[in-house]
């Protein structure tokens, strides 16, 4: 999903008041509503219009979005920390997100949703993944003059809440059933 300039979508100025936003939405919605329009791309266009209106009509969502838009326009990494979700870091124009995985998710693979600056993207974690592995999601980093950086998911396998009795019993069962050969070279 690309970052969308909602003001451009509704063809209004960034300083538009709520009445202007509402009128712009109504006009475009009538024009592009898939139930009305014969335009072949109307559904896609209407979705963008509806998404823009959904955010801009709500004062707090609009304030958050304005902040994100300013950073996007500045195309610079500075000052981004306050808008980045937890576990999301910046490395030049690339975004690094730490993805915590349960051992079975790392072993069997899974599919997760990653938060990015432009909404959520789906990511498939392959089976037999390990801590430290980096998965690249092209084009979800920061925009800069030569293009756009990437998003990297850095995997970290963590133990689930070890205080629980159920989890402890599960590990006890596993400890007898699998031969773990990672320290072979230490044996004399």
């Amino acid at each position: 999903m690309d970052f969308q300039d909602y003001y451009k979508t509704l063809s209004i100025a960034a300083s538009a008041d709520s009445e202007t936003i509402k009128n712009a939405y109504r006009k475009l919605a009538r024009q592009y509503h898939p139930d009305v329009s014969g335009h072949h791309k109307s559904e896609e266009k209407f979705k963008q219009i509806a998404e823009a209106y959904e955010v801009l009509r709500d004062q707090s969502k609009r304030a958050q979005y304005d902040q994100l838009l300013r950073h996007q326009q500045a195309q610079s990494g500075q000052g981004l920390d306050d808008v980045l979700p937890e576990n999301l870091y910046l490395e030049a124009h690339n975004l690094i997100i730490i993805v915590l995985l349960a051992p079975w998710e790392a072993a069997l693979g899974t599919s997760i949703e990653l938060p990015t600056l432009s909404g959520k993207v789906k990511l498939r974690i392959p089976a037999n993944s390990e801590t430290g592995q980096r998965l690249r999601i092209k084009g979800h980093g920061l925009v800069h003059k030569d293009g756009q950086g990437d998003l990297f998911a850095v995997l970290k396998v963590v133990l689930p809440d070890s205080g629980s009795e159920g989890i402890k019993r599960y590990w006890q069962q596993q400890s007898g059933s699998v031969i773990f050969g990672s320290r072979k070279e230490w044996r004399g």
Binding site: R26, A29, R30, H33, D35, V36, F46, A50
Partner: peptide, 8 residues
């Protein structure tokens, strides 16, 4: 219903 919701 869609028209009522989307076009107000």
């Amino acid at each position: 219903c869609r028209l009522h919701r989307d076009l107000e």
